[in-house]
Amino acid sequence: MATNISFILNGDEISYEVKDHWTLSHLLREEMGLIGTKEGCGNGECGACTVIVDKLAVNSCLYLAIEVEGKIVETIEGLASTSGALHPIQQSFVKNGGIQCGFCSPGMIMSSKALLDKNPDANHEEIKHALAGNICRCTGYVQILESVEAVKNMGGQNE
């Protein structure tokens, strides 16, 4: 069965006809072509598919698309400004080597954003806790944590 839902995606109001069994990651990637969000395990174990729904980081592979009705969804595509300038978190990942193969990066960055939006002064332990659900198979965790920590010192430039 198909249902028409409306929600806000990266600031734009969207209306879309979704099938009952679609997950949010399926809707974003397969239907809307927003392939920035990655799907790793599809079982909620790796965090690659992390997106932000109503300010909370969630696994989009375990979120039914039909349930985002009326919610505010943010994906990696919505981070850069319209002029193309990268978001401070993205800049920090680039600058501090937080990206290796890049597959986990969208999830890592969305988890980091959910944390920093809520708690801009998050300490090392809080960052580790917030990123505990994201796996990096290149094992570049140290640089990723450093990248998130470094955002604090950037003072939100280019925003």
């Binding site: 965090g47 992390t50 980081a57 969630v58 696994n59 375990l62 988890s111 806790h129 917030a130 659900g133």
Partner: peptide
């Protein structure tokens, strides 16, 4: 239980 991304409210 799980990780923060799952815990949060799902």
């Amino acid at each position: 239980i799980g990780a923060v991304t799952i815990q949060h409210y799902r």
